[in-house]
Write a protein that binds this DNA or RNA. Structure first.
Lengths: 258, 258
DNA sequence: TAGTGGTCTAGACCACTTC
DNA sequence: AAGTGGTCTAGACCACTAA
């Protein structure tokens, strides 16, 4: 009935370790026995013990550090992303700080590294979103967001060049147009953001994403696409993000439509 | 710099096959060369060729059928879930049909199998959501939803027993209270749904979920939690679902808060 | 029955970490 | 230098599919 044989020593060892982790015999961060020891203990080949470890790795239960050992995965606090993260009250603050000098605590809550602003030809989805011809030039602002010293997500925003030219949005110094800062700038330009459309899709990461987000094997990502619109429904920013799934959850509220 | 050695024959073979799949040399549904052939072709051991296949399997690029072969994964159409799926206009229809007889085409668009209604003691999250004591009895309605003959998601709803007793919500025949049917019933009870809160979280499936949803290895799931509230903010239904990530995307729109 | 995927062993070598 | 994870080989056996 079951198409996949779930038996065999490797699966048995994996199951026992999984149980041991689940009931706390191995705490988060604790090191598991070395593969060679597991092999001896269970009377299997090293290869088979390694396979068991690999199964747990794929499930995301453990993380292996090359040359060091296998460790029970530390769970990071989950950040809940609700509509509030776009609240107007938050831009003001950011905006005021943006006028001042770098106060040296930028990375405390949400540090941005690897910020980059480029002018690139629009891919199809960008062109459609912004209502410009395909391959016409658009402003692309990319950044990788860190928390607790680890990357949590990437975000790439697109703007029409004629709208953001000569604004701090073009400034690639970290923190300048970060957070809701761009919203304040757009407001100044007479393009006040009013509504947000968001699309979420979960999938396994590409190898590039595994690299950039330093994802443990077996961790999915959530692709977030958003459209920021003015009261007239005019899209002023189109953005795409890739989030490490284990670090986020999303919260939405809406009235039941007619 | 890179902590994980990504080199080696297995990875090289996986990369070549991945590329071949990506540019269409292997179409969806097509069978890949047998592991033994790959081994011979690349001059590696059978074990290594199998490992390459396993990498692609973990990534979800291919599906293996025991004793038959490895096949490029067929992609299912993605269903977009927006607020519209709760629209009032949709309950009416369902409600009218619910009064009629089973017309035999139930499974055409969205078939529900394995519907089950039970009265169970409330777990903590259920108790909190419905505002009842932990372990007090609540009505639990579980179902697995199919599409194209394959399970796409599970859904478990909770209600207060005194509110839904003697209503079709307690009827475990498939299709009776399915879709928005429960909303119409709640409306009749003077508990008209007005607002929806939804929470989304992506993660890897448990082994149970792999079984029930027949998930290919490497496919994540999305956990959806929702609260259905009346105009007064009273929670009339609390529900949790587990969705096969590859078959859905979610769409939300909201105004920027103050 | 032949073909195929899944698994395992025993031994080997390499790459990285830790001391 | 010692310990550890990652990978590979060559051969073997088992489980399942398809004809």
């Amino acid at each position: 009935m079951s198409p996949e044989p779930q038996t065999g020593p490797a699966n048995r060892i994996a199951a026992e370790l999984r149980a041991a982790i689940a009931d706390g015999r191995y705490q988060p961060g604790a090191q598991l026995p070395p593969v060679r020891d597991l092999a001896k203990q269970y009377g299997v080949s090293r290869n088979t013990a390694a396979k068991a470890i690999n199964i747990l790795r794929t499930e995301g239960a453990i993380v292996t550090r090359y040359g060091s050992g296998a460790y029970v995965r530390e769970s990071h606090p989950i950040r809940t992303l609700g509509p509030d993260r776009y609240a107007r009250s938050k831009w003001q603050e950011t905006r005021v700080r943006a006028h001042g000098e770098d106060d040296g605590r930028e990375k405390e809550q949400q540090g941005t590294q690897a910020q980059e602003v480029e002018i690139v030809p629009a891919e199809e989805d960008v062109a459609v979103a912004l209502g410009v011809p395909i391959a016409s030039l658009v402003v692309e602002r990319s950044r990788t967001v860190f928390r607790d010293g680890l990357p949590t997500h990437t975000m790439v925003s697109y703007y029409r060049p004629e709208e953001v030219r000569d604004t701090p949005i073009m400034d690639d110094r970290p923190g300048m147009a970060g957070r809701g800062g761009s919203f304040a700038i757009l407001t100044d330009l007479g393009l006040a953001p009013q509504d947000v459309d968001e699309k979420l899709k979960a999938r396994m990461p590409t190898t590039d994403e595994v690299d950039v987000l330093r994802l443990p094997p077996g961790e999915p990502v959530v692709e977030l696409t958003r459209w920021i619109k003015t009261a007239e429904g005019y899209v002023v920013e189109y953005a795409k993000g890739v989030h490490a799934a284990s670090r986020f959850e999303w919260l939405y509220s809406f009235p039941i439509p007619d």
